[in-house]
Design a protein around this nucleic acid. Sequence first.
DNA 1: TGTAAATATATAGTCAGTGTAAGCTTCGTG
DNA 2: CACGAAGCTTACACTGACTATATATTTACA
Lengths: 204, 204
Amino acid sequence: MEESRRERKKRQTRQLLVSTALRLFAQQGYDQTTVAQIAAAADVATKTFFNYFPTKEDVLFAQAEQYMELSADVVAAREPTDGLAEVLLKAYEQVIAHYLTVGPMAGDRELTKVYEQVLMTVPAVQARALHLLFDLQRELARQLLKAFPDKLDPISAAVVAGVFMGAVQSAGNAARELGQSSDEEITESMRRGVEIAMRGLRSF
Amino acid sequence: MEESRRERKKRQTRQLLVSTALRLFAQQGYDQTTVAQIAAAADVATKTFFNYFPTKEDVLFAQAEQYMELSADVVAAREPTDGLAEVLLKAYEQVIAHYLTVGPMAGDRELTKVYEQVLMTVPAVQARALHLLFDLQRELARQLLKAFPDKLDPISAAVVAGVFMGAVQSAGNAARELGQSSDEEITESMRRGVEIAMRGLRSF
DNA sequence: TGTAAATATATAGTCAGTGTAAGCTTCGTG
DNA sequence: CACGAAGCTTACACTGACTATATATTTACA
């Protein structure tokens, strides 16, 4: 079945809300922009905004579920010869590639800056981002446990996911704090983080 | 200089707000309890509550900064013979011990249950908790970098902290989800998490 | 005891987010 | 084509977190 008119309109409205919100955030700042303003600028009722996004923050994370599906796909489609480390690395590469090429930030330097600015300064947004990271981590653990039932148990699967995500996230964050702002620098730092997670902390 | 009257009163008011809030949360649930109610029950103005705690959630994390100081102390007071792994393990043991014996939850089964219930079900509180975890991680990275300037650089220090905290946090969480509710079971799972972080993910 | 700083207060607001009921659009079925 | 069900949007009213401001009170200290 193709996309029905209803579904199409819904997607359009959703997209309109996202782009309108980002535009206003860029113009006047996140905190200075009210949901009522976003709704008015998109010409819908305020309540409609909340029908699409449970909170104001969520409009910034509209594409986040895709990452979850993406990594799940990679884990599910693993080659029988692939070990746990290989699968993790592939999932990582996939998500990064998707982020850099397909996501709403892809290539748009201006938008990326707005995003980063908001993410670094607005506590509520930071909190929401961490929560998402956390969900992603839990989902990854589930997938890994299903893919490697002989090597993992529920606890170790969770730990593997937690270690991996912790490495990537902390590396990316540290890179940003050090002023590394280009995609290349940041992904390179993340790669180092992954390598450390693979080797283990005793290697220091 | 001892504690002045002003400081003493401040501490008392703060303590009163915390215990009053917890009592009300236990009685009527977190969402059902308003800040106005807490303030009224503690016989202060609503605004006063916000003078002590920036948000409603914060009243649940009154003791969190102590963990940061604690782990910083451990790292700072390391023996010259201690390697990075040993220092991390010691800091971990210290914080756990502190949590189990000194914290407001120590021994109070009832209060611990309220806490866990709130933490598992209220999104705003989860978000706040994650944010704290994140701060703690960053602080740990700073301390490690200072203690091991020859072995670490800013990126790798952040990664070490991120991997370590990620392991502990995900293990603890997975344990709770599996229904392990006793302190012993949970700390045992966390210990496994730490071991995995030390060994590295390639060991699977 | 007088004075400046810190703190608490009441008042009046802004804004995120919810509940509800009513109306409009779209969909499937006969 | 017709019609009823289901899904969305909307207006409206409301709760409650949080802030700004201006005022009063308490405390520290000379």
